[in-house]
């Protein structure tokens, strides 16, 4: 059993990264991760060792995220986040702000698809499982999400991100 805990622990950095990008807010992201850990650690017995632990954890997180969204009566504004470490360089900070804003304008299901595939580098199969959708649906959300993101970062007077460090 304890070996499974170590496997879960290994996924925490990725869960935090995904939650942060998904919610656009550090505190909310860690709330989500904390709930995910509490739930997964109390349900270790439900995980089948033959399956990879990563999709299982992300699925739990996704469901918690949906529940939370249903409860939330208002949209938490995405964007500038004062809790971000001050040591961040100004340009990476600006990049993060731009992307937070752009991602915040995507439909949630598209945002999740773009992040699971693009940032978490999850296979299309696993990402579809996490989101509970057929792979064809995943591909269309991915395509539409990326297209929308491209327009948001491209036009509308906002300078397109040119440099990636």
């Amino acid at each position: 059993m304890s070996g499974v805990r170590a496997l879960i622990l290994e996924q925490v950095p990725a869960l935090r990264r995904y939650a942060r990008a998904l919610t656009g807010d550090r505190e909310r992201a860690d709330d989500l991760v904390q709930d995910t850990l509490a739930r997964s650690l109390s349900r270790i017995h439900l995980w089948r060792p033959a399956a990879s632990i990563r999709p299982w954890l992300f699925t739990i997180m996704h469901n918690l995220f949906l529940n939370e969204r249903r409860r939330a009566s208002r949209t938490v504004p995405l964007g500038a986040d004062p809790a971000e470490p001050a040591a961040d360089r100004a340009d990476s900070r600006a990049l993060l702000d731009d992307l937070d804003r752009a991602l915040g304008q995507l439909a949630e299901d598209q945002r999740a698809a773009v992040l699971l595939v693009g940032v978490e580098e999850m296979s299309y199969d696993d990402a579809a499982k996490v989101l509970g959708i057929p792979i064809g649906t995943l591909m269309s959300r991915l395509s539409r999400g990326r297209e929308q993101l491209r327009r948001l970062l491209d036009g509308d007077g906002r300078p397109r991100i040119r440099r990636v460090k």
Binding site: P13, R17, A21, V33, L99, V119, V164
Partner: peptide
């Protein structure tokens, strides 16, 4: 591709941060 790389560059460092104590406490 550029957008994807930008996303990775922006959110990647979050995975390298120290684990917040409240998350460690869950374990």
């Amino acid at each position: 591709r550029q957008d994807r790389d930008a996303l990775r560059a922006a959110y990647g460092p979050i995975a390298a941060e120290p684990l917040p104590p409240r998350l460690a406490a869950e374990f």
